[in-house]
Design a protein around this nucleic acid. Structure first.
Lengths: 326, 326
DNA sequence: ATGAAAGCGCTAACAA
DNA sequence: TTGTTAGCGCTTTCAT
């Protein structure tokens, strides 16, 4: 069966299309009698407005796009969940796109956003996104972009990030406070601004306290496990993990070697919060909440949409969640 | 700046709108000269077709919807990832909707699908979805539905599921093979058909082998941990976990009590595959692949869309992945 | 090879 | 209070 349209309702009821349209939107001009008549008719015929027609006509899709590397990621997942919730509340639809960390797919996704005439885009860029030219095309047609988590280095764009320096600082300070002497610190992709900042903040505190610090970069689990195996030979008394992926790799190595946490070795991580609780003793971590980030990003979007010309550059505070791993 | 339209290209080039439209779609009637001219112009003016207009005109949105309880779930996440990939390849867009296991939101989502004139819907129903009336409205307007994972009991609808009985059977057989004598078996939500089937298959094999079997239902981590603590008093030699959530709860209890796996107690789970590898020794599990399910669901959708009247009822084979936990 | 025109379903300004 | 009409941007039939 074919979908019911205003035209059909008009034909069946004998009323004009515009009267039907108005009645359905509870327009004050329409009499109560007509309204209830039309609404009832619409219900029995299962009328649902054709959103393409509405959007074409109103030139407002009430649609936001979000580009993440992959939804299979605790952090981004929680960001999306938060965005989705806010969109629901504000009667927007969210178009979720995955870049797979491939700049070409990212560029395709941006095109999709333009074709769909999104009202705004939330974007987490790929490590290879050197210039943001493809994003600029959105700006040219006045589609605001809120970058989040992984953001461009330039300052003329809206950004919402988790605390980069702060979270590394908190972890470093806890290590110092616990009188650790030799730490293995594993960081994520060195292309990212956030990695650089955390690396600098962390190592600085280490030197300030005269704590020996072995550093390495890794962005996946297996590599982290290998690195841990290698550097465990140097007998660190603690390990700092910048991401969940690193943490799981490190834990695999530790568990295989049957090392006791925290007696043989201490562990501290930066995480969104699920993985650290899976282990026993549970891992102490600095929480960077994707949920909070999502909410803040949405807030920034709304204020930008409603005319604020202010460049948004916001940061989510980190929280220390104490486990028993250090 | 405003978006470029065919009209604008027409005005700038002096060609008619229809010529522009044809040139852009590589229509054979148009001369090469005109084509290249138009394409170049479109590029310089950053033309992107207004998808709402295209869809309104062509009455084909090339859009699928998918409803899951939450994207924050390993299994559903991988289903979505697979669906997304297939959609990409086939030039469809995927609209991802979350029900939060709330029948009311589910119903809203279905409405959204109708409003967006999706070409088809992939749906994983909520535990409370007693009747599928809201889904029927989609069928009335010829929108095919492929139910997956959690599906209605009635037989007149398309279904793609993971092996229910088989996976429970495989786990049970392994437990028997390993000569276990007393097993604690934790199952998910008892409303689901899949739970019932697995429960029956599992307990049947247990009785056939004269293995004592304590059973309980739990659908979240904390509850699973509590149940484990309670039933550990009865000294089972093995635990069967029907889901990842159950597994993490069980493992928390085991780790807190410092029980050694597999010496003190054996563990076996049904899982999508990530969580079991996090532990050491790694957990033996029956893999139910969300990725395979997604691919198969898409296949079913495509054959239904292209006219097959055949009721699809397909099942993903399970695979035993051996860890060291039993 | 190109153009004119109709119409997809809807909203809203204007008319009655 | 209701109806008429134009038009959003696009595709496609029919004419030239």
């Amino acid at each position: 069966m074919v979908n019911t349209t205003l035209k059909k309702l008009s034909q069946v009821s004998g009323l004009s299309i515009s009267t039907i349209s108005r009645a359905l939107k509870n327009h004050p001009d329409i009499s109560e009698k007509t309204k209830s008549l039309v609404i009832e008719l619409a219900n029995t015929l299962d009328y649902e407005p054709n959103i393409n027609a509405v959007h074409l006509r109103t030139q407002n899709n009430r649609l936001f796009g979000v580009i993440v590397p992959s939804i299979s990621n605790f952090f981004h997942e929680s960001v999306i969940a938060a965005l989705e919730e806010e969109c629901r509340k504000n009667n927007y639809t969210l178009m979720i796109l995955q870049s797979g960390d491939d700049p070409e797919i990212e560029s395709d996704n941006i095109k999709l956003c333009r074709q769909n005439r999104v009202n705004g885009l939330f974007a987490c860029i790929t490590p290879e996104t050197k210039n943001i030219e493809s994003f600029s095309k959105l700006k040219e047609v006045d589609i605001p972009i809120i970058f989040f988590d992984r953001v461009p280095e330039r300052s003329d764009c809206h950004k919402v990030c988790v605390a980069d320096i702060d979270s590394a600082t908190m972890a470093a300070n806890l290590i110092a406070e616990k009188q650790k002497k030799k730490v293995l610190a594993l960081f994520g992709n060195s292309n990212f601004l956030i990695t650089k900042k955390r690396f600098n903040a962390f190592t600085e505190i280490m030197s300030a306290h005269n704590i020996a610090c072995i550093t390495a970069y890794s962005s996946n689990e297996t590599h982290s496990e290998e690195l841990t195996n290698i550097y465990l030979a140097e007998n660190p008394d603690s390990i700092f993990c910048m991401t969940d992926e690193i943490l799981t790799g490190v834990m695999r190595a530790i568990q295989k070697k049957q090392l006791k946490i925290p007696d043989d070795i201490s562990v501290i991580a930066i995480s969104n919060g699920y993985i650290p609780t899976l282990y026993y003793p549970s891992i102490t971590y600095i929480e960077t909440s994707g949920k909070k980030l999502g909410k803040l990003a949405f807030e920034s979007m709304m204020s930008t949409i409603s005319g604020s010309t202010f460049i948004q550059d916001r940061t989510i505070e980190s929280v220390l969640v104490r486990g028993q791993s250090i």
